[in-house]
Design a protein around this nucleic acid. Sequence first.
DNA 1: CACGAGACCTGTTCGC
DNA 2: TGCGAACAGGTCTCGT
Length: 272
Amino acid sequence: MPELPEVECIARKLKDGKETPSIVGQKIVKVSTRWPKHIESPSITTFRRKIRDRLIEDVGRRGKYLVLTLDEGSLLIHLRMSGDLRVAPGDEIRGRFDHSVFYLESGWQIRFSDARKFGKMILVENPAEILNKLGPEPLDPGFSLEIFSHMLKNKKRMIKPLLMDQAFLAGMGNIYTDEALHIAKIHPSRKSNELLEIQIRSLWSAIRMALQAGIHNNGASIDWVYKGGEFQNQFRAYQRTGQPCPVCETPIERTVLGQRGTHFCPNCQPEK
DNA sequence: CACGAGACCTGTTCGC
DNA sequence: TGCGAACAGGTCTCGT
């Protein structure tokens, strides 16, 4: 579930206080986990001690990381493939996949649900030491066409795996990459340095278009893990193998690139 | 540097 | 109905 738009929506939900109280301004009294590997660093013991009595001052997102700014340090949470974060009342029955739980002083809890157990949490003094390794934010106003164009020309890689490389560009995952390439009419295996200027411009705008659409639809829900999002009803290519391309009706094809299922229209997105 | 394979995990869905 | 295979939103590490 979680690529940039989903993580953005989760961050907003944790903060806005509409359905459940905002976690901003709340104090963490304790953390408990059934899956210690959720805690990447520091050690479990140190993590437990340091997280105690921390005040949550803000919630945001950078790339696919949720960033909780605390009164001392920051908590970075990466949801990976199947993670979700939500606020629940303390008396709500713990879900099957709620492997880690933060207890808040108010009695509410932050539940980290994670069926595949790939998620990770990091508690750091300075979040920049982790987040600086990420590429630019595609929705940042400073992410200009000129910058993107230079970035692409400096690499000689297949465009899809490149867009998904978090050190190159932050936040793109399998769904939004397939969607953006379809909008831009670019074959996923085209080399980044061989794209025409006009294709670069289309791609630059398509990336933002796809991500914005995702955010406006509360993200994409696909399987049993995530609920709430509606973007899955607007997929143009992703997971639409054999179904007609919304532009030209040619059946969407599936292949594998960078070990990821890849969906494209062979007519709109010619290989050469 | 670019790229593929294997790990890490578990749940659902598909094909026979 | 049962059972193994394929597939799933991500990323890291290693070998070529």
